[in-house]
Amino acid sequence: MNLIYEVLPEDNVDCLRESCNELMKFQQSAASIRPELFNEMSFETRLIPSIEKAIHNFIVVVKDADRIVGYVYSNISPKETYSNEFATFFDMATVRKPNVGCLSQFYIKEEYRKYGIDSKLFGMSMDWLNQFNEVNDVFIFVSNGNVDALEFYKRKGFTVSHEILGGFITVLRN
């Protein structure tokens, strides 16, 4: 195994189509609350619109040789981006600045989850997010049923803020 971490330019995200769609399928399989909401979630409906709405994007892929085995996507976006027809993800009045940081998508193929890739990608994302002085608030949204992810983020210092959509998503905050 030869893991390579590579920052991916925004115009090269098409290589994440398969991994992003695997993430959506995994989230749906783990969900006990409204799993049908994942039916419309895919690379085209989640990752691409998020990248387009963000002010800054940070994407890191992990490869074993030439095979993508994981990725993380973080962004800086106007806080209003998180109030839309799907949901309002947090109380806008509690966010002190116009922009927020978000660790938006995080996926590692199951057979690679025991090698510390999660901590490395998380650290790279937090380092990137923390460089923006215009951002005080960083959010992570965890789909219901993904207990391992929820506990991982809590161990990394994030706290549960609230749930939205009747528990479909747990909102964590720095």
Rank of each mutant, 00 (worst) to 15 (best):
N2Y: 08
E6L: 07
E6Y: 11
V7Q: 14
L8A: 10
L8W: 04
P9F: 01
V13L: 09
D14K: 15
D14T: 09
D14Y: 13
C15G: 12
C15A: 09
L16V: 09
C20S: 07
C20L: 13
C20E: 15
E22V: 02
L23F: 04
M24P: 14
M24Y: 01
K25Q: 08
K25E: 15
A31R: 13
I33M: 04
E36G: 00
L37V: 07
L37P: 11
L37F: 03
L37D: 03
F38N: 03
M41A: 01
S42G: 00
S42Y: 10
E44L: 00
I48T: 02
P49A: 03
P49H: 05
S50P: 13
I51G: 06
K53L: 08
K53T: 02
A54P: 14
A54T: 02
N57G: 01
N57E: 03
F58Y: 15
I59H: 05
V60I: 14
V60Y: 00
V60R: 11
V61L: 15
D64K: 15
A65V: 14
D66V: 09
I68A: 01
I68L: 12
V69M: 03
G70E: 11
Y71W: 14
Y71A: 05
Y73R: 05
S74R: 06
S74F: 05
S74C: 15
N75E: 00
N75L: 02
I76C: 08
S77V: 12
P78H: 10
E80S: 06
T81A: 04
Y82C: 12
S83R: 11
S83K: 14
N84G: 05
E85H: 11
E85I: 12
E85V: 12
F86I: 14
A87S: 14
T88Q: 15
F89H: 12
V95K: 13
V95S: 04
P98M: 03
P98I: 00
N99S: 00
V100M: 06
V100L: 05
G101V: 04
C102S: 05
L103G: 01
S104C: 04
S104M: 11
Y107G: 01
E111V: 09
E111G: 08
E111F: 04
E111P: 14
Y112W: 15
K114F: 04
Y115S: 13
G116Q: 12
G116V: 00
D118P: 10
S119W: 09
L121V: 08
G123Y: 10
M124D: 10
S125G: 12
M126Y: 08
W128I: 11
Q131D: 12
N133K: 14
E134A: 02
I140K: 02
I140V: 11
I140G: 05
S143I: 08
S143M: 03
N144M: 09
N144S: 09
G145I: 09
N146D: 03
N146F: 04
N146M: 04
V147Y: 06
A149N: 06
L150N: 01
F158A: 02
S161G: 04
H162P: 13
H162C: 02
E163G: 06
F168W: 02
V171G: 09
L172Y: 02
R173D: 07
R173T: 06
N174G: 00
